[in-house]
Amino acid sequence: MTAPTTEPAGEPGLRERKKAATRQALHEAAVRLALELGPDRLTVEAIADRTGVSRRTFSNYFANKEDALFHGDRTRTRLLIEKVRARPAAETPWAALSAAAADFYGQLGDLNPEWVTQTRLLRRHPSLAAAQAQTFAVMERELSAEVAARLGSAADPLGVRPKLLAAVFLASLRVSLTVWLEHPTESAYADVARRVLAEAGRGFE
Rank of each mutant, 00 (worst) to 15 (best):
T6L: 09
T6C: 01
T6K: 07
E7K: 07
E7H: 09
E7N: 03
P8I: 03
P8Y: 00
A9S: 14
G10F: 11
E11K: 11
E11P: 01
P12R: 04
P12E: 15
P12S: 10
G13Y: 10
G13V: 07
G13S: 02
L14N: 06
R15T: 15
E16K: 04
E16R: 03
R17H: 12
R17F: 06
K18H: 11
K19P: 04
A20L: 08
A20C: 05
A21M: 07
T22N: 01
T22L: 11
R23N: 06
Q24Y: 00
Q24E: 15
Q24C: 01
L26P: 00
L26Y: 06
A29S: 12
A29G: 00
A29K: 00
A30S: 10
A30P: 02
V31S: 09
R32H: 09
R32L: 14
L33R: 12
A34E: 07
L35R: 06
L35C: 14
L35G: 15
E36T: 10
L37S: 11
G38M: 10
G38V: 10
P39W: 11
P39N: 08
D40Y: 02
R41P: 08
L42R: 10
T43I: 14
T43E: 04
T43N: 10
V44P: 00
V44N: 02
A46T: 07
A46C: 05
A46M: 10
I47V: 15
I47G: 04
I47A: 10
I47C: 07
D49C: 05
D49T: 11
T51K: 01
G52P: 04
G52H: 01
S54C: 09
S54V: 12
S54H: 11
R55I: 03
R55M: 01
R55N: 11
R56A: 15
T57R: 13
T57W: 01
F58R: 11
S59D: 13
N60G: 13
Y61Q: 00
Y61R: 00
F62P: 01
F62Q: 03
F62K: 05
A63D: 15
N64C: 12
N64V: 02
N64Q: 08
N64M: 06
E66L: 14
D67E: 07
D67S: 13
A68Y: 04
A68D: 00
F70V: 07
